[in-house]
Each structure stands twice: as structure tokens, then as C-alpha cells.
Write a protein that binds this DNA or RNA. Structure first.
Lengths: 115, 115
DNA sequence: GTTTTGTGCAACCATTTGGTTGTACTTTAG
DNA sequence: CTAAAGTACAACCAAATGGTTGCACAAAAC
């Protein structure tokens, strides 16, 4: 997970992910799209590959980069899980708020149990 | 976006996000949970704050950290958008495969626009 | 054959990151 | 009042990051 989010934490790399999602292309073709050296783009692709966000497939002397949907899904699922944790807590809070309003001391989660 | 994914690219920080999602707590309370100095945890919280993944609220001498669901949503939505790009392309490919192979209807996009 | 193209990798550099310790300030407790 | 708790922040350090140039090598083109 560290590697996935780390790889996504760069605008160029996110752009590469979108590009290869739209159309697979060689590393050189990708490099032509950015105002930086080929080596820099090649390193970005390597980072994405290490994170399993893209896969490279040798085709003759070219290396075709294509995206790996499953890894994007994994990251998306984790974030959705976070949202769920929030919703669960929000549900608990509204449960508390539905209790006797004359009872003081339950407007927020001031109680002290750990996770 | 850079900051959001950057912030999520660390296991300790992701854990903090989950913890404060479950229950808001002070920086010191958070720090007690990890085998590192208070200053280190405080810096992690600062990174999360800069990314708007958490918000701090002063309460007396304590600083209560709570999560910001909207930012998690933003990141999740971006990833879902990536998934959609994939699906769209998959759809196009199956459309193409259904077409007459002599028809060159699928011109390749040369240079590009940034997202 | 020779040359060009596509790629990978090493060396280098400046900046950022993730951790430390130490100091200072403000609020609460005694 | 003084002491302690909670926080912020600076200085420092090792390692990682994002970029560069240069070189080596295999596959394709000539």
C-alpha cells in the first residue's frame, strides 16, 4: 500500500496511469509527452511498475506499458473502507443522539474506550 | 492531490486516519499509540493536516484531531475515475473488435493534454 | 555489415522525508 | 505562586525522491 499511494503522489505518474489506461504505449511514446528527460519518465514508469500500477510487456525492442486495474481497485477499496469506518462512527453518534436528550454528557464521544 | 496521496503513503499516517475516524483524540493520545517520539507523531499529524485529511481543533491545552471525510472521498473519487477510464477503453476495444477491421475509425491520440 | 531506435542503469545533485533531541510557550493542576 | 501537561518548532541526520547526463546493449532499419 505504501508503494501504491507513494506512486500516486506525483502528478506525472498519475498522468501516466491515465494515459496507459486510455491506450497502451511504449516508454518512449510516453516520454515524448512530458517536458523531462527520457530517463526521468523511465524512472516514473519503474516506480509505477514496482507498485503494480502498470505492467510492461516486451514487444520487439519496445516495452509496452499497460495499466493494472486491479491495483487501482485495491487502493480505491481501502479508501472506501475508510469511508465506512467514518459512517459506522457517524451511525454510533446518531444512535447516541437518539437517546434521552435530558441525559447530559452524551453529545460527543467523550467516553474512554480504546479501539 | 499530491499531498493527499503523499500523506496516505505511510502506514503510520494511514493508521492515524483510521484511529481518528473511529474516535477523535488529542495529539498526545495518538502519540501514545506508536513506538516513536511525540514529535514524530506530531509531524505525521501535520502532514495529514496539510493534506486536509484531518483537522485539528483546539480544546483547552489539548489539540483534538478529527478526520475529514470529504478529502478521503476526493481521493476515492479520483481512483474510481481511473477505473472508469479503463472501463471506457475496454468498451471501445470491444466496439472496435466488433467493427470492420478495414475501417480505421480509431485514430491514435498523438500529443496530449494534462489531466 | 553500420546506424538508429528503444531501453536500462549508474553516477551525480538538490530537495524532501521520517526520524531524533532539545527548547519554549500556554494551559491546567496543585 | 510553581509544577506539570500538551503542544509547537527548530536543528540535525540518514535515507529516499525527482531530476539530470552519460554510457551500454539489443533489436530494427538501412
Amino acid at each position: 500500500m505504501d508503494r501504491i499511494f507513494q506512486a500516486l503522489a506525483d502528478a506525472t505518474r498519475r498522468d501516466i496511469v491515465v494515459r496507459v489506461a486510455q491506450r497502451e504505449q511504449s516508454v518512449t511514446a510516453l516520454a515524448a509527452s512530458y517536458a523531462m528527460s527520457f530517463a526521468a519518465v523511465q524512472k516514473h514508469v519503474a516506480v509505477l511498475e514496482r507498485a503494480s500500477l502498470v505492467v510492461k510487456e516486451r514487444r520487439g525492442r519496445e516495452q509496452i506499458v499497460h495499466g493494472n486495474l486491479e491495483t487501482v481497485r485495491r487502493a480505491a477499496r481501502l479508501l472506501e473502507h475508510y469511508e465506512e469506518v467514518w459512517r459506522f462512527r457517524a451511525q454510533s453518534i446518531s444512535d447516541i443522539l437518539r437517546e434521552d436528550p435530558n441525559e447530559p454528557g452524551n453529545e460527543q464521544d467523550r467516553e474512554g474506550e480504546k479501539s
